[in-house]
Every structure is written in C-alpha cells, then in structure tokens.
Amino acid sequence: MRILQNTIKYFLAVVWLLVTGYPFVFIFQSSMKGMMEYFTTSVWALPQKFHFANYLQIIQAGFLKYFLNSVIVSLVAVFLVVLTSSMAAYAISRIRFRFSKAIYGLFLAGMMIPMHVTLIPVYTMTRRLGLYDSLSGLVGPYVAFSLPISIFILVGFIQDIPLELEEAAVMDGANRYQIYGLVVLPVIKPALSTVMIYNMVMLWNEFVYALVLLSSPSKWVLTLGLWNFRGEYGIDIPLVMAGLVLSVLPLIIAYVFLHEQIIKGMTAGSVKG
C-alpha cells in the first residue's frame, strides 16, 4: 500500500517535472538543428550535429544589442526603484504625518491598477516629453509599476526594526537623512536585495511598455527583439528557437547560482497584503 502510494506520488511528480522542464530541453535541442532537419527528423531526436550557426546568425541579427539594452534599462530602473521606494518606505513607517496612511494605501492600490488603463496616456506623454523610442522613456513607467510592491515589502521590514537603533543614532546627533542612509539602509539590506531580485526578474521580462514605447531596432530590449525576430524569421524554426534560448538563458544562469535567493525574492514579492 505504502509502496503503491509512493509510486503514484513520484510518478506524478516526475510527470510534472517533464511538463515544466521538457519544453526547455525541446527548445535547446531544436535550436541546434538545421532548418530542414527540424522538419524531417523526430522532435525528440538529438540534433545530427550541433549547429552553432543559428546562434551566430542570431547574434549578428542584433541580439547582443538587445541584451545590452535590457541590461541597461533594468539596472537603471531597479536602482531608481530601490532608492525611491526605500525613501518612501522610511517616511511612511518612521515619520508621523497626516496623510501617511492614505499615501501608503494609494501606493498599495497601485498593485490592482491594470497597466492598460495607463498605456495610451503614457504613450502620448512619452512622445510629448521627447522620450519616445529611447531607452530612458521606459524607465519612468518601469519605476512606477515596481513601486507598490517594493514599498510594501520595505515598509513591512522597516516596521520590524527596533526603534532603539535609531534612538542611539539620534543621541549621537544624527539627523533624519543620516539615520536613513547610515542606520536604516544597512539594516534593511536583505529586504533591499529581495526588492532588487523581484524587480529585476519582472523588468527583464517586461514586454508591453517596450512594445508601445520603442520602435527602432537599435533600441529594442530582449523581449521585443525576440518578438520581432519571430515575426521576421518565423519559418526558420530552429533559428527562432536559438533566439528563445538566448533570451531565456541569462535568468536561468543567474538562477543556477542564486536559486535560493531568487525563490525567496519571488516569494516575498508575492505575499501581498
């Protein structure tokens, strides 16, 4: 009975393992095939020989540029998110002022707002500001959309810090700005890294704003590059698969080294109040 139960349990566990994992094996091995080979051999078969040619072609098509654009936009946005959300979270949890609850509530309500209601005004505003089709145009909306969850995580964390720490700093004559920078920020480092990881994953994968706010290929981020690449080279399936692999790979590599932290970061990000 026990054995039967266990067999069923692990059988199902392995089935789910294949369901989640095999698509990645599929795109990886298909990306190494030639275009005709893909159509004439079994999808389960390993490539007859490893064609790295697909990868070369992808890189020549501009993927390095898209990769670099993604790195720049997400790093700048994440840096601004960490700075602005930690400042706001500090004020909300440590300074008593009249509308503190209301402002916190407003930020939290941001989690419920469908981004599509902002899409056209953000598009027209970005055009008017002269930021259309530039990487800097993405930063504003990216920061705004990352703020609610980030502030939520940080307020929860700052409220748990014992006040004595800050008290001691006041005794030493520190002002509020020094307390924020020299006492609070170092203490909330673990929460800051959660905020960083969560937003990095989200922004790295962001697509809709990129689709609406960018147009020339030299500005494309990875998701947009992949999308347009599929439209252009759709028939050469292995080639598109190579693009897919390259777009998925950076986060997977990060995950190999940091899977504990990434899982923790994504969990903290999901426990909304």
């Binding site: 300074i95 002022f97 703020l147």
Partner: peptide
C-alpha cells in the same frame, strides 16, 4: 525622531510620488 517634519516627509516621498503620480 518621530515628530512630524514636513520638509523631511516631502524630501523622502517626492521621488516615489513623482514617478507614481505621473505614470
């Protein structure tokens, strides 16, 4: 430390509110 300090509140909240309100 906890005293209402309008300037500090404004300084700390302004950057986040700027992005949030605008976008």
């Amino acid at each position: 430390l906890l005293r209402n300090d309008r300037i500090a509140v404004a300084v700390f909240l302004a950057p986040a509110l700027f992005f949030f309100a605008l976008y």
